[in-house]
Amino acid sequence: MVMLAPNQQQTEKLIYERPHSLEEVYTHYCPGCTHGIAHRLIAEVIDELDIQERTILVAPVGCAVFAYNYFAFDSAEAAHGRAPAMATGIKRVNPDSIVFTYQGDGDLASIGIAEAIHAASRGEQLTVIFINNAIYGMTGGQMAPTSLLGQVTTSSPTGRDAQATGQPMRIAEMMAGLPGVVYSVRRSLHDARHVIQAKQAIKTAFEAQMQGLGFSIVELLSSCPTNWGMSPADAVHWVRDEMIPVYPLGDYKVAEALQNKRGRN
């Protein structure tokens, strides 16, 4: 037992708190859903970079439609898939703001693929946080462009068939092929180690925008226990065992100016 000397003051050290960039509210996300983790990581990064007061979120249509209730900064709610276009409009007239979109796979990879690709191709000074959970969450579990082959969803009841609906789309790899993109990586939120790596990637993506380098995107493999019909624990294992083989984690493009930054695997 360590005895404190009478003159030795016991000081409290705060090691964990709610990020200032998150509102003090409950979210509507299901138990075991990784949206909450992704929100927290973004908020921590924004606090650490001290950009809360100049950050503007463009929320998607999907489960994160109310993301603007959870983040504590200016926010817009876009039409389905149009977040990168709306964000373009905002950023072009507010060039010193930090503008990011938060989009799921239905929003970005399906209905909004044109807006996403063209914003990236133009090298818009935007950051995209792309949540890939291989399913449409909000509408109740339909097949997404990122659904795995054989994956049973409410609109692919016998499993996704490549002949009829093609192969899962690999967004991080695709974005890396566009000259306007300076940072395109894939991370996962299935365990603590990967969550920490995801946070580093999110930070690098925002730093890319702060330095005016161009378009940055972080794809986050995420779980959807409710629509996958799994327990939260089984769901993160499914991310690890089934999704990662199809969606390899890694850095698909890191501009030279970002090479010495965090965010590498």
């Binding site: 276009a85 044109a114 063209h118």
Partner: peptide, 18 residues
Amino acid sequence: QAESEVAAVNMVYGAASA
């Protein structure tokens, strides 16, 4: 110059929001 009218109007929506 937007990639489509769909994108153009949503860019307008963004700038109008600003």
